[in-house]
Design a protein around this nucleic acid. Structure first.
Length: 348
DNA sequence: GAACTACCAGTGGGCCATCA
DNA sequence: TGATGGCCCACTGGTAGTTC
């Protein structure tokens, strides 16, 4: 990659080009990937620490606060991930979240001097305006909290620099949402490509449906359907259309059915295909809903794949009740399978 | 070709209703 | 009353179309 292309990538540090560059950097020397270790790479690259609990994120932040039910489950998840990745619980932070940490680094290095110079010229044309980054309420909050330990007020510039950094940190967390969404698809695609003796002849993330062999172009003025991840494998060119969702919400569950109906509608080869859900969702009710969802009397999904069913077992604990027990029954029955098991079967 | 706008699809957060 | 489930929101990057 040339200096120019690195510069272009860093303009969108969380965009597809830079994600691709970072993934190649992370995976250099790792290939081939053993299927049963794929989940470790997914977690090392994408899993993060919830800053409000200090624990690895496995459920919504508000329900994982100390004292609430998911705090104990988050503690178990954090302990399990730490042990499984060979890390101390306190050190897990630096073991995971690789993609976000490196994209953030690129974002900081990409904040160009040229942009700052331009901002200076823009402000010079309209003098007397409030300075960017000033946040008097936040400044007061910090100064009041630290007052007992301060011998004298810090210089205004130092306070402003601190508030700017806090704002930058908050904005960065918002960028994670996009990174986890498309990054999950990217990570799965590269891991599948790096399986040993891969039997796949077609692996593409965010693939237009009509680019997959055996599907029609969109009709009339219909928009092209985009598939999260598409695979074609084996001597009979078996097709797998994969919806990859780090987490699931009820409003997205309806989309699974309509997407599948569109895929069936636009199939032209007259052959069946697999419709697969890959997720890191830990909510048992959502997993059960995905496992049991029907379409025309058959399971909607050919396979329901979780990044780590061992993590699910660890989180749910020894005495699961109600929906937790039901989700575990699907795990034990194989309806919800681990990423490693699914990859092992696929690439044989 | 650059800059801008509108729209889309993805995510987690958070509020609130329901249920056991 | 606390856990759970449903829904909507804000925010992001990507893309297509338009304007200059």
């Amino acid at each position: 990659m040339t200096a120019d292309t690195i510069g272009a990538a860093v303009k969108r540090a969380f965009g597809a080009d830079n994600r691709d560059r970072l993934l190649r950097e992370y995976l250099a020397g790792i290939a081939p990937i053993a299927p049963d270790t794929a989940w470790k790479h997914v977690y090392r690259l994408l899993l993060w620490i919830d800053s409000t609990t200090g624990l690895a994120h496995c459920y919504e932040s508000d329900k994982s606060q100390p004292g609430r039910a998911w705090y104990e489950r988050s503690l178990r998840f954090h302990a399990w991930v730490s042990a499984s990745l060979g890390s101390a619980p306190e050190a897990l932070r630096s073991e995971i979240d690789w993609l976000f940490r490196h994209a953030s680094r690129d974002l900081a290095s990409g904040a160009s001097a040229r942009q700052q110079e331009r901002a200076k010229r823009q402000r010079a044309r309209t003098p007397g305006m409030p300075e960017p980054g000033r946040d008097p309420e936040l400044e007061n909050l910090i100064l009041n909290a630290l007052a007992p330990w301060l011998q004298e007020p810090p210089p205004p510039d130092a306070v402003r620099t601190l508030t700017e950094r806090i704002h930058r940190h908050t904005r960065l967390e918002n960028k994670r949402k996009n990174l986890v969404g498309e990054g999950f698809e990217d990570v799965l695609a590269v891991l599948i490509r790096l399986l040993p003796a891969s039997a796949f002849r077609f692996v593409r993330a965010r693939c237009p449906l009509h680019d997959i062999p055996g599907f029609y172009e969109p009709r009339d003025r219909e928009k092209p359907r985009i598939v999260d991840l598409a695979l074609v494998r084996g001597p009979e060119d078996r097709r797998s259309l994969i919806t990859a969702k780090w987490s699931i919400r009820a409003d997205r569950e309806e989309q699974f059915v309509s997407d599948c109906a569109s895929y069936v509608h636009l199939e032209r080869a007259g052959q069946s295909f697999d419709y697969v859900l890959i997720t890191n969702e830990f909510d048992p009710a959502r997993l059960v809903a995905a496992a049991e969802r029907q379409r025309e009397g058959n399971p909607l999904f050919t396979n329901v794949v979780h990044v780590s069913t061992d993590a699910l077992k660890a989180v749910y604990g020894d005495r699961p009740s109600r929906s937790f027990a039901r989700a575990l029954a699907h795990v034990r029955g194989g309806r919800v399978e681990s990423l490693g098991d699914w990859l092992s079967r696929l690439h044989r």
